[in-house]
Computed example of a mutant assay.
Amino acid sequence: MKHFITPLLLSLACNAALAAPMDNEALRQEAESWVKQQLANSPSSTVKIGRLDSRLRLDACALRDFQLAPGQRLLGNTQIRIRCVEGADWSVNLPARIGQEVSYYVAARPLPAGHVLGAGDVQLRRGDLADLPGSVVLDTQQAVGQTLGMAVASGAPFRAEMLRAASVIRQGQRVKLTIRVGGIDVSNEGTALNTASEGQVVRVRLGGNQILQGTANADGSVDVTP
């Protein structure tokens, strides 16, 4: 009989193990490992995974899939979707908090709209990206030399939508044109019909009311390629 009892007991033990509910703490640890893998290229990130309701009993699952819940991102307060893909049919969302320490730039003093930012106008700060506006300026080169589209209070973070490239050409300004035709450069002068920043399109009126369109250069000249 022993030859029959032992396999039977083993079979019953295995079935009992499969029927045991999932360990919620083990799921939390798996989710934390998955998030850290996604953030492997962001060493300054911090991860805090919440806990499932202790009353929640999930059926045993041989294989789980981890993803961000729809509409979530790997930053700030977010939700991790855990779904059983083998052995049971369930899915749950697990709360998480993901932080990322970054350097960002704020106004060193109150600045008016239309002000062209210099190095002394920006000040470096450290903070959690999750607590900052999504368009916050993280590189000083994004700010210095740009024109403020609105007034900024002292200590306020610079955001991309606040800034525009400084004008290199003003409407009505006399400008030098370089017209490239067949590999030959022809110089001329005219009057700018619109204000433009470097790289933007500018229309220029020449003598005789001829109007050409070109690209504004940093030095205030215009390149025209017919």
Results as ranks from 00 to 15, higher is better:
Ile5Phe: 06
Ile5His: 02
Thr6His: 08
Leu8Ser: 11
Leu9Pro: 03
Leu10Arg: 09
Ala13Asn: 03
Ala13Ser: 05
Cys14Phe: 15
Asn15Pro: 03
Ala20Ser: 15
Met22Tyr: 04
Gln37Gly: 10
Leu39Pro: 01
Ala40Gln: 12
Ala40Arg: 10
Ser44Trp: 07
Ile49Tyr: 00
Arg55Trp: 10
Arg64Ile: 06
Leu68Glu: 08
Ala69Asn: 14
Gln72Met: 11
Arg73Met: 12
Leu75Gly: 06
Thr78Val: 11
Gln79Leu: 14
Ile80Ala: 02
Ile80Val: 15
Ile82Pro: 01
Val85Lys: 04
Glu86Ala: 13
Asp89Leu: 15
Ser91Pro: 13
Leu94Phe: 10
Leu94Thr: 08
Ala96Arg: 00
Ala96Asp: 00
Gly99Lys: 01
Gln100Ile: 12
Arg109Gly: 07
Gly114Thr: 05
His115Ile: 09
Ala119Trp: 13
Leu132Gly: 09
Leu132Arg: 07
Asp139Thr: 04
Ala143Asn: 10
Val144Tyr: 00
Thr147His: 10
Leu148Glu: 02
Ala151Lys: 04
Ala156Gly: 07
Pro157Asn: 00
Arg159Lys: 15
Glu161Ile: 11
Leu163Gly: 12
Leu163Thr: 07
Arg164Phe: 08
Val168Phe: 02
Ile169Gly: 01
Arg174Ala: 10
Val175Ala: 00
Val175Pro: 00
Ile179Pro: 00
Gly182Trp: 04
Ser187Asp: 13
Asn188Thr: 09
Glu189Pro: 06
Leu193His: 02
Asn194Val: 08
Ser197Asp: 05
Gln200His: 12
Val201Asn: 11
Val202His: 02
Arg203Gln: 13
Gly207Leu: 13
Gln210Lys: 12
Asp223Asn: 14
Asp223Lys: 08
Thr225Leu: 13
Pro226Gly: 09
Pro226Asp: 09
